[in-house]
Structures are given as structure tokens and as C-alpha cells.
Amino acid sequence: MTVTIVTTRLQEVGVPHMVWPAMSPDLNPIEHVWDQLKQRLDARTPPPRDLADLHVALVEEWNALPQNNIMRLVRSMRRRCQAVIAANGGNTRY
């Protein structure tokens, strides 16, 4: 129900929508953002000691992620989808 409401609202305000292949989470640029976040967390010294430290570290590192990297990933979506289509749904370099 919520998905339908959100989809309808996005259409009403003119936000472009992309049909997403069901088994293609690797296309999603957020996966690369999570990887960048993990790398930043792994590089922290000292590492987070407990859940509270982890929460603080996650917020700090999330806020420090370079926006140009995220925009580069978003802009790569057309190329990502074209590569998957060209590979007939097979593996791509992405």
C-alpha cells in the first residue's frame, strides 16, 4: 500500500521513475555508497567500541562522504542499464 502511495505521489510531482529489474541489486548505486561507508568505518582508529560509538561513527562518516562521488554514481545509471541490456542481463563491469 505504501509503495503505491509513494509511486503515485512521485508521478504527481513529476519525479522520473525507473522500472527496476527484480534480481539486479548490483545496479543500485547505493550499494557502492554502502561500500564507501564501510571502507571509511574500517579505516577509523580507534574503531567503534560499542553500538553508541558505531552510531556516532556512521553519522560522521555518512556526512563526510563526498557528494561528487554520489553524483557520479547517480549519473552512471544510464551506462549501467545499457551495459546490462547489452549483456542480456549477464555480468557487467559494474
Rank of each mutant, 00 (worst) to 15 (best):
V3D: 13
V3R: 14
T4E: 15
T4A: 15
I5W: 11
I5P: 00
I5Y: 11
V6R: 12
V6H: 01
T7G: 11
R9Y: 13
R9F: 15
L10E: 08
L10I: 02
Q11Y: 06
Q11V: 01
Q11I: 05
V15H: 07
V15D: 05
P16N: 02
P16R: 12
H17F: 00
M18T: 15
M18R: 13
M18E: 15
M18K: 08
V19R: 11
W20M: 02
P21H: 01
P21R: 04
A22M: 07
A22N: 10
A22I: 06
A22G: 09
M23H: 15
M23I: 03
P25Q: 04
P25C: 06
P25Y: 10
P25T: 03
I30R: 06
E31G: 11
H32F: 05
H32P: 00
H32G: 05
W34T: 07
W34N: 07
W34S: 08
W34Q: 08
D35F: 05
D35S: 13
D35A: 14
D35V: 09
D35H: 13
Q36F: 00
Q36T: 09
Q36A: 14
L37D: 02
L37P: 00
K38N: 07
K38Q: 14
Q39M: 06
Q39I: 01
Q39H: 15
R40E: 11
R40F: 04
L41E: 01
D42T: 06
A43S: 14
R44V: 12
R44Q: 14
T45E: 15
T45V: 15
T45N: 07
P46Y: 07
P46C: 08
P47W: 00
P47F: 01
R49S: 14
R49W: 01
D50M: 06
D50W: 03
L51P: 01
A52W: 04
D53Y: 03
D53F: 07
A57V: 06
A57I: 00
L58F: 10
L58D: 00
L58K: 06
L58M: 15
V59K: 13
V59L: 11
E60Q: 10
E60A: 14
W62K: 03
N63V: 04
A64I: 01
L65V: 15
L65H: 04
L65S: 06
L65N: 02
L65K: 03
P66Q: 12
P66L: 11
Q67H: 12
N69T: 04
M71S: 09
M71Q: 14
M71C: 12
R72P: 01
L73W: 14
L73C: 02
V74Q: 08
V74D: 02
V74R: 12
R75I: 00
M77F: 10
M77A: 05
R79G: 06
R80H: 08
R80D: 05
R80Q: 03
C81D: 00
A83E: 04
A83I: 00
A83T: 03
A86D: 15
A87G: 12
A87W: 09
A87M: 05
A87H: 06
N88S: 15
N88C: 12
N88T: 02
G89Y: 09
G89L: 11
G89F: 09
G90D: 02
G90C: 05
N91Y: 09
N91C: 10
T92V: 13
T92G: 04
R93Y: 06
R93P: 03
Y94R: 01
